[in-house]
Each structure stands twice: as C-alpha cells, then as structure tokens.
Amino acid sequence: MIGIKQGKVVEILDKKKERTKIVVSIDGKKEPAINYNLMTGEVDINDEVVLNTTAVDLSLGTGGYHFVICNINKFSNQLTGEGHIMKLRYTPLQLKVFSEEEQDHPNHDLFNRFKSLNQLPVIVGTLHSMLSPIAATLKYLQPHIKVSYIMTDAAALPIYFSDTVYHLKKKRLIDATVTIGNAFGGDIETVNIYNGLIAAKEIVNSDIIIITMGPGIVGTGTTYGFTGIEQGNILDSVNDLEGFPIAVPRISFQDKRQRHYGISHHSLTVFSKITKTKCNVILPQLSADKRKYVYKQMENLKILEKHNIIEEDGAVLSNALEHFDLSVKTMGRSFSQDPAFFLTCSAAAKYALKFSSKFF
C-alpha cells in the first residue's frame, strides 16, 4: 500500500530542469514535496497535485519530502523522444529511456566490440556520502582527470534527487553520470553494471570511475539485509571486465551502533562472504589502537588472506574540501565528527590515481 493525498502548490522553493522542490498545502498544513519535471511535467503555484506521502507518513529518512504522482492541472503529458527501454518497469510510474545499448542507439555496436577495461581504476563504495570526498580528492590532486559516476539502483532511483550530484557537476568534480538498472536520469543510461562500466570507459573516456548507490541505503540489522551488499557483486564485475577494483570500506569510530563500529558489518560481510574475486581494500592511516581494532576484525573473517589491504594517507581531503568549498556529512555527522569515514574515501581516491594510465 502507498499513502496518497491531494494538495495545492503554494510555493516554489527551487527549480531545476529535472526537478522542482515545492511547498504544498495538505488540509491546511504546509509540507515540502518534490516534483520530477521530466516525469510528471512542470508545476506552478496553485496547481492541484496528487502526492505519494508514504515515507513521510512512516517518518522515514527521505528528507521529509512528499513526491508528486501527477499534476491535475496539467494532466496530459505527450510521449516524446527516442528510446524503448523501460525503467520502474510494470509500476504506475514506469518510464522510457534511450539506453545506450539498445538496438536503435548509435552506440549499440560499441558494446559488442568491447574487449576489456584494461585495468581502468574503479572505486566502489556503498553510501552516497562517499561520493563527494572521493571526487573532491581526485580533482584536487589531478584537476584534468576525467571522472565518471555510476549510480546504482540500490537506493534512490532518480539521480535528480541527489543535491550532491548537482553540486559536484556544477563544480566539475564529476564529468559524466551513468544510471544503471532501474536508476534513471544520468547523462548515460544502461541496463546493468557491466554495460555501465563499458559506457563509462568507451563513451565517457573516463580516467577513473566512481560507483555508489544514490541517497537512501536500506539496512535491516541482519547479516545480508542491506542494499550495500551490491558492492561485492560490483567488485566482481570490475574484475570480470579486467578493471582495477578499489573497495571503499565503511569505517567509523563515532557510530553508536556496535555493528557499524570500526569496519561496519556491511563491509565485513561484503569482503568476507560476497566478493568471489580479489580486490584492493583501502584503509586510511589510523591511530595504533584503531588500526589494531580493524585488523582484528578482518583477521577474524580471513579478509586479510582474501584481499589486498592497502593503507593510504587521506589527509589531503581537508585541503580539497576547502579548495572546492564543499561540506560533507554521513548519517548526520560532519568530517570533524567522523573523520575516519571520510579519510577512507579520500585514501581510496589517492590510491586510485596511482593506477590511472593517464598518470603513469
């Protein structure tokens, strides 16, 4: 079941080509909402809209937004443009995209001619909050590097929902976006991670690829019940295509939940149980006691035997964030409040640059 209510648009907060943030009046109460312009059309003040209110009704972490299902005042949208690949398939909001690999696309044959990633560095994270520190470090150290971002479908599906992506593209810290699976709205659309990787290499000509889900990881507190588990399969796909897989573990010494202390159980599960191939797991430089703690975690699960463990100094991140006028947060915590998390991301970026063919 979904929660549905009708409201009236009373204020436009922020309008972009793809997305408009609005305030709606529902039974006399003003509440924030998001309209995806490319799905449900343009929205104006006094328009009557039908809203999906489910997440807010359940007090879930969507930023407190309702989402416009349709605009009663602009009810008819004409189907335009090319493309026959459906995303959000067999739901009331299924939409078509012009996927790079479909038969009518000019790039179709490129995917059949593809041979190898040729050890292209691919940084694979989990949380969307890893994207900014990775991209900022890459561009701070090598401003002319070409960076693509692949957003998976393990969390938010419209890339338009991410303010982070808007900011990073505006500052030219990521050069192109690719959305895969049922995620949509990237500069490039593909049907799965394999073709997403191929597109990032062959179409974007990326020097380095970053992969994370969008905002809104799902976790249940069970061993395998979290959407970040995709990291293991993605690392294997990078190896399948002969890329250079760099894994970003989720590390924190500020999270009050024991299962996320040190190396999160999410990362420990991925590296010990899910990945079937060897990858490069990056650690930041840590104090002696914290270093001992995380190595003990990995030793207990034989991760030290299975993967290459690399320690890298990510301290350059503070300079990068200041240079680009960026602030970062994860789970509501800033860089100063949870340094290990963000330094891990920066360390992975710094390590990746050592293996980019552009800088050999």
Rank of each mutant, 00 (worst) to 15 (best):
C70K: 13
N107S: 15
Y36I: 07
Q119V: 00
V124R: 03
K96D: 00
I123E: 02
V124P: 08
E101T: 06
A55F: 12
L117M: 07
K87I: 09
D104T: 15
M86D: 06
N46P: 00
T91M: 12
Y36L: 11
T126I: 11
I72F: 10
I69W: 01
S25H: 00
I69P: 04
Q78I: 14
Y90P: 00
K29H: 06
E100V: 15
L79M: 09
L88W: 05
L93D: 11
D47K: 01
Q103E: 15
F114T: 09
V122N: 08
L131N: 08
L127P: 00
N73C: 05
I72Q: 12
T80R: 11
H128F: 10
P92N: 11
L38C: 02
S116Y: 07
V43N: 01
L95W: 12
N35K: 03
S59T: 11
N52C: 02
I123A: 05
D27L: 09
L131V: 15
Y36M: 02
V124E: 04
Q94L: 03
L110M: 11
P121V: 06
N73W: 03
I85C: 00
G28W: 04
L60R: 09
D47C: 01
N118S: 12
F75G: 05
D47V: 02
G63C: 05
H105Y: 13
L131A: 12
E100M: 15
E100F: 14
V24C: 07
I85A: 07
L117S: 07
G28Y: 01
S59E: 14
K30E: 14
N35W: 04
V68Q: 02
G125T: 03
S76R: 11
D27N: 13
I45T: 08
V24D: 01
Y90I: 12
R113S: 14
D104A: 12
C70I: 06
V43W: 02
V56P: 03
N77I: 14
S25C: 07
Q78P: 07
S132I: 15
K115T: 14
I45S: 04
I34Y: 02
T80L: 14
E42L: 11
K21W: 03
G61V: 09
S129P: 07
L60T: 10
I34C: 04
T54A: 09
M130Y: 06
H105I: 10
N71D: 03
E100K: 13
I34T: 05
V122Y: 10
N77C: 00
Y90W: 12
C70M: 09
S116P: 03
I45H: 06
V68P: 01
C70T: 13
T80E: 14
H66V: 01
D104S: 15
